[in-house]
């Protein structure tokens, strides 16, 4: 009987730990809203303050493959994507990938805290309604744009997107 109790407790603890981890990291991995065009339009330039108050402009990264991520700290699917973006930046940064985050939070402090907590390794700017309008309206989060080395939009992804989709597109452009 002791063995049985021990077995039950062990299984409960193991599955609970796994469940907690799944619960924390889970985001839907379905790809929806992906739009890709051969007739690529130029990604609108912007100049925004980053989380340290320095100016961040898209044009200063021209020549790199850019993954522009519109997100917010309170957005659950966005939060799920960030660690994957950190890995992607690590993996392809040397080959010319530059991920740029544009936070649509209402204030900068939660973004600064999040940046530290998630050990983000790419610049994050603080955007607003004007930036959203520039990109055709950011009316849901996250939204990611993949931009080629000439500054043209290669793909747009609305909603949480599997990192393998971004990786495939980035590799095709590098």
């Amino acid at each position: 009987m002791k063995k049985a109790v021990l077995l039950i407790l062990t299984v409960i603890v193991v599955l609970a730990v796994v469940a907690r981890r799944v619960g924390r990291d889970w985001v839907p991995v379905k790809v929806h809203g992906a739009k890709r065009s051969d007739n690529r339009r130029l990604a609108p330039d912007f100049s925004l303050p980053d989380i340290n108050g320095q100016k961040l402009s898209l044009s200063s990264y021209l020549g790199k493959v850019i993954l522009l991520d519109f997100w917010a700290t309170w957005c659950v699917p966005c939060r799920g994507e960030i660690p994957r973006f950190v890995e992607l930046q690590n993996k392809y940064g040397d080959r010319g990938l530059q991920i740029i985050g544009i936070s649509l939070d209402d204030s900068p402090q939660p973004v600064r805290d999040f940046y530290q907590q998630f050990k983000m390794n790419y610049p994050v700017a603080l955007g607003g309604a004007k930036t959203g309008d520039l990109y055709g309206g950011i009316l849901g989060l996250p939204i990611g744009f993949v931009i080629d080395r000439d500054g043209r939009i290669y793909a747009k992804h609305i909603g949480a997107t599997d990192i393998s989709v971004f990786e495939k597109e980035v590799k095709a452009l590098l």
């Binding site: 039950i8 299984v11 409960i12 599955l15 469940a19 799944v22 619960g23 889970w26």
Partner: peptide, 17 residues
């Protein structure tokens, strides 16, 4: 007993989520 513990764990996981 193993099945029972699995069910309990699933319920716990759903509650956590």
């Amino acid at each position: 007993l193993f099945l029972l513990s699995c069910l309990l764990s699933c319920a716990f996981a759903l509650a956590a989520r």
